[in-house]
Amino acid sequence: MGSETEKHTGPRHVAIIMDGNGRWAQARGRPRLFGHHAGARRVREIVEACPENHVKYLTIFAFSTENWKRTQIEVSGLMSLFRRYIFKEMQEFVKKNVRVRFIGDRVKLDKKLRGLMDEAEVLTAHCTGTNLTIALNYGGRDEVARATKRLAQDVANGTLLPENVDEETLPKYLDTHVLPDPDLVIRTSGEARISNFLLWQSAYAEYEFIETLWPDFSAEVFHELVSSFGSKDRRFGGVKP
């Protein structure tokens, strides 16, 4: 009789583009930041739903490299929200056995936020349950560019030979080098685009674009999407024998 892992055909790694916070708030006559706070509360519910859905890795798109173009009020509010969220949830992550990682370019983030990110990663490094990865000041093209610079430096230093560079090499330099590629990418709010999210890693991921705005995204909806994944015929470029 096979193990639970062998029997399970659902996604091991789910990535989510959490879209629609602003529209959710505006539909209620509230400022956009009200929606972002509601969206942050929703994250905990989905993280807690991962074990029962056999999802070992969850990656969420919190703030993109393009989001700096938003108003100063919204950006400042988001940065304050991130600081409060990480500080507030840190002990909860440990209690729930959730390991936290961050991906993205941290240089542009403020010192206090970077310190909280570092602290959360260290504090949860021993956790063996759900792996939560938060993409903060993240962009897929930016990630590949940064990875390529590091790769080029190793070539220049002589620690990597150009002829040894192949499609297995670059992933070792990506922010996600310790993570498996996502099996399922979900985008909420009805938009059908990937918005520069995990471009390299999602080459063979299944995509689900749903109308639900992120603050309305529930554990039940998450379960439905994860469950339907098992019925998909994933051939990775091949054909069935």
Rank of each mutant, 00 (worst) to 15 (best):
H54E: 15
T133G: 04
L136K: 04
F93E: 05
A147M: 10
K95F: 01
G104E: 07
L198M: 14
H13S: 00
K95W: 00
D183A: 02
N67S: 11
R41S: 12
M117E: 11
Y138V: 09
V47R: 05
A125H: 12
N164K: 15
D216E: 14
S202E: 07
H13P: 01
N53H: 15
R23C: 13
R42C: 12
F61D: 02
F102V: 11
L81D: 15
I16P: 04
E220V: 08
K108Y: 00
L161V: 03
E4K: 10
D118F: 06
L179G: 03
E74A: 14
F82G: 01
V75Q: 05
R235P: 05
T176P: 04
A203Q: 01
W24D: 08
E48F: 07
E211P: 00
F63H: 13
L78K: 13
S189R: 06
A62P: 11
A147P: 12
N164C: 13
H54L: 06
F197C: 10
Q26V: 08
Y173P: 09
G29E: 00
A38Y: 02
E208F: 01
I73L: 14
K69N: 13
Y138H: 06
V55L: 11
I194N: 02
M1P: 01
R23T: 12
G237F: 10
W24S: 08
N67L: 08
F93Q: 05
S3F: 10
L132S: 12
Q201R: 09
V14R: 09
E119W: 06
V144C: 04
A192L: 07
N137F: 06
Y204A: 10
G140R: 01
R32N: 09
V144A: 11
N164F: 10
K111F: 00
A156S: 14
F102Y: 12
D175F: 12
E168Q: 15
C50I: 13
